[in-house]
Design a protein around this nucleic acid. Structure first.
Lengths: 271, 271
DNA sequence: GAGTGGTCTAGACCACTGT
DNA sequence: CAGTGGTCTAGACCACTCC
């Protein structure tokens, strides 16, 4: 006589499928049996099978494609962003001549991809600072700001860390250089630090704040995320040499394709 | 004549509910109409309403409680972990006498909570290094390791960042101090850096690697996460003054209650 | 055209919560 | 006890993919 399994049937089916995937019985990229087949095999209704599939899809183990089937997801190898060295690299680069900078951009610094593989979309806008942004800058709500939004997308190389960026700058600062308001100049050649230099601003330190949450519908679409994936949210605050906030930006990145790295150097104990 | 909405009905219902929440019509903590009521109101079946509810629960907007109802989720205010200063603080603390350290622990450093509010569970184990861990230490697979696992849990204060930690140390190093193998000593008083000091190890630098992914079933249970929430995964590698990896640990934290902060100090441009 | 996953219905029973 | 969300069924039609 067997002991009964009192868990709901769709949980049991999910556990069964999870086990088959973990054991390698169903390898990466492999197709699962169809829903009617699974229903027959487990002796449950198709609805129950679909609930089971919902569960393990929520864990990021499988991917469903309408009209084709359900497949074991192939893990994407994450791209490492070492921000301990990246920001200094960006700052050093801002001093070079356009010729010296050559074709090397920050995205290549992370990914090793060519500019041609990527598709940038960007937009400029003058708006009033909303509450949370104003708070970070330490300025009154409604202060005129330049808001830049840009996204990196690509349909081919699937391991690329697509991203969505919203960057805020004080309008009165950038207005000193008309070039910065020319939306024909996107993305800013030489990077933001280079462009800020043209209006006499030098970045002294940068604070990254990182958190995670489930992807919204829009983000799933833009970042090519499956159901039940997470995004990392990077809030980056750049402080200039006068101690003021020069730029604030929010970057949305796919959780499964991004690893942030930070190294902390500690002081030695006295001998 | 109205234009038709060709989206699936459960998506339309989800959009309707999302809008009511965003507009404040349904405020935080408030109870949604019951499923049969919603079905009647939108003119769809209860199944369709449940699919709609699944969608917005996956976005972290609502929470369902069996027998009670469906409620708008109250946002938890995240706890900030500033690792730029935290690690130096831990290292400085390792030099103090037990008296000087007093009752202040690292968790309080983050949360401001009393030790009494929290429940620690811990375990020691001697195991062989698996492949990925061996690689980080630069040692052969199968090398004897001390693996410590500990979890922080709490049922009351819901804003506490619960966590699950797996820490790896080379067995031959900690074996020099029998105290470190006494599982009665949990958690290690004075912190890991203090205990490593007793075997002559000083940490020189620490690298954090951060990524995000959806929570597994176990993690949902242990970290008190709702359906469709993400976790942050922190992989922390501590390098000693000889340049060797002294400790490697993996920390799982709830994405919605945790913000990591890192500040990068940049070098000044030449005048 | 056959097979797939996506959507949807109408109904049923259950365990849990509150009164 | 009545009301709630959780589970489950049997069946239907659809849009999509592939041959």
């Amino acid at each position: 006589m067997t002991t009964h399994d009192y868990r709901p049937q769709h949980i049991q089916v999910a556990a069964g499928l999870r086990e088959r995937i973990a054991s390698g019985d169903l390898g990466p990229g492999e197709k699962l049996p169809s829903e009617p087949e699974l229903a027959a095999a487990y002796g449950v209704s198709r609805t129950t099978v679909r609930h089971a599939i919902d569960v393990i899809r929520g864990e990021g183990l499988i991917r469903t494609e309408k009209g084709r089937g359900t497949f074991v997801r192939i893990p994407r190898h994450p791209v490492r962003r070492d921000h301990t060295t990246r920001y200094q690299w960006e700052k050093d680069r801002a001093l070079l001549t356009p010729l010296e900078r050559g074709e090397t951009g920050a995205t290549e610094h992370d990914t090793g991809l060519e500019m041609g593989d990527l598709l940038f979309t960007a937009g400029y806008e003058m708006t009033a600072a909303p509450g949370d942004v104003a708070e970070r800058f330490g300025i009154p709500e409604g202060t005129p700001m330049l808001r830049r939004t840009y996204a990196t997308s690509v349909r081919e190389a699937k391991d690329v860390p697509l991203n969505i960026v919203t960057s805020w700058l004080r309008y009165d600062l950038v207005a000193a250089n008309p070039d910065l308001l020319d939306s024909g100049n996107e993305p800013w050649p030489g990077g933001t630090m280079h462009q800020l230099r043209t209006v006499g601003i030098e970045i002294d330190k940068i604070t990254d704040e990182l958190t995670g949450r489930p992807a919204s519908d829009d983000e799933k679409h833009l970042l090519d995320l499956d159901d039940g994936e997470s995004v990392l949210v990077l809030r980056k605050t750049s402080i200039d040499t006068a101690g003021d906030v020069a730029e604030y930006s929010e970057v949305i990145l796919p959780g499964d394709r991004t690893v942030f790295a930070y190294t902390t150097q500690l002081q030695r104990w006295p001998a």
